[in-house]
Design a protein around this nucleic acid. Structure first.
Lengths: 128, 128, 128, 128
DNA sequence: GTGGTCTAGACCACC
DNA sequence: GTGGTCTAGACCACA
């Protein structure tokens, strides 16, 4: 995971978001043990305290479970994971629709635009 | 227009993009006179030369026409504007789909997610 | 006639050339009276002495005849005019062929290029 | 290459033209590395930024490729080079025909004049 | 060292 | 006043 932070939001929240993305996508699979705080902090290039705070937030949200000496594990709670995916998906969709409307595209036209794009780009993920 | 620049791309290109968004959305209506280079530069907080470069690029793309002493005007070429909107729309859709797929959403599921979101936000999405 | 002088050659020679062009093309028709030295100098934006020198050169070449009080007249000597046209034409052709060869076009290919151009541009003089 | 600029056109465009001539004639062979921006600017006696602008234009036209730290290279795209030669050749022919017509030579007579000149200069025209 | 970008400040033609 | 061009000098990423 490439960590790049902007200064519009606290870094720890940006980390929370990034880890949530990892969990939602399955990059951090349910039941899996997360790397140690130190390692995660090192990888992200932030202070371990900042990473600690992010992980505490994730735990508060029920997405990871700290097990005293063994480390932190991604939750296996399917409902929680589903809800997470729903929330993040909704956020992405919301931002998307906002941008499209800013461009002058009416709500009704958005789904068609999406379907057309998928039809013409099926198979090739064109990262830009 | 709120100008905020990140350092992942040249400022002049970010300006090009921002102005294109303004033109595509109609914030800068076809045939309208744009503010002068100096004014735009002042507003964006960049050097007039940088703004000049961005505007030259827009002119090269056929989106604005410079008229010697009278200023620059947004093109009235409907085809060019339509193509612009198509390109920008496609870029937004592409980024959206990429994010959704990164989240683990399969392509086939994306349109449904969009439609559902629009259905549940149809009231607030169109605050006009 | 638009007078623009470069500094690679004496101005009076550039004037000679310009007037020769006028005579060769018929802009100054055979037998016609030329404007006065003063007027020509004024029009060209040069010192009357400079214009005088240019006209003297033209007279030396037999292209104009000074008639004491009546002014200067373009020669009616058809042979001289023909020779003039030939010389100027040759100079233009020579410069043209030099440029084409500098571009890497072989001598044998030049006439074809000319004919093709004329064929595709018959009628429309495209000044550039 | 001898750089001499007139003030009828922006210097950077004159440079573009000069470099195009070099590329079209093969003086800058396909695939060859061009001198650095700084060196070219020094040679031409212009500001590096002006030379940069000219080179950027050449790149936009697909005639040179910039390779980050290695320098700029003349394109090897034969089609692009052929088109370039065609364009430049056409421009020269057009100017030539314009001058001839200004001299009073009719279009039909131009090819003959060219062929005659070449015939009489076939020895010295190809001094290689 | 290379290309690329940005700023600052100047001058010009046009009307 | 407008757009357009040019210079000077600086900084950056890349390798």
């Amino acid at each position: 995971m490439a960590w790049e932070f902007h200064d519009n939001a606290p870094i720890y929240l940006q980390i929370v978001n990034g880890l949530q993305r990892g969990i939602a996508s399955g990059a951090y699979a349910p039941g899996t043990r997360l790397p140690s705080v130190r390692d995660l902090a090192l990888e992200a290039g932030v202070n371990p305290n900042t990473m600690q705070r992010a992980l505490a937030e994730l735990e508060r949200r029920g997405l990871v479970n700290a097990q005293r000496t063994a480390g932190r594990f991604v939750t296996e709670d399917a409902a929680a994971l589903a809800e997470l995916r729903k929330e993040m998906s909704d956020a992405i969709v919301a931002e998307f629709c906002r941008k499209m409307q800013e461009l002058g595209v009416r709500s009704e036209e958005i789904p068609a635009a999406v379907q057309e794009w998928i039809a013409t780009h099926s198979g090739s993920a064109n990262p830009m």
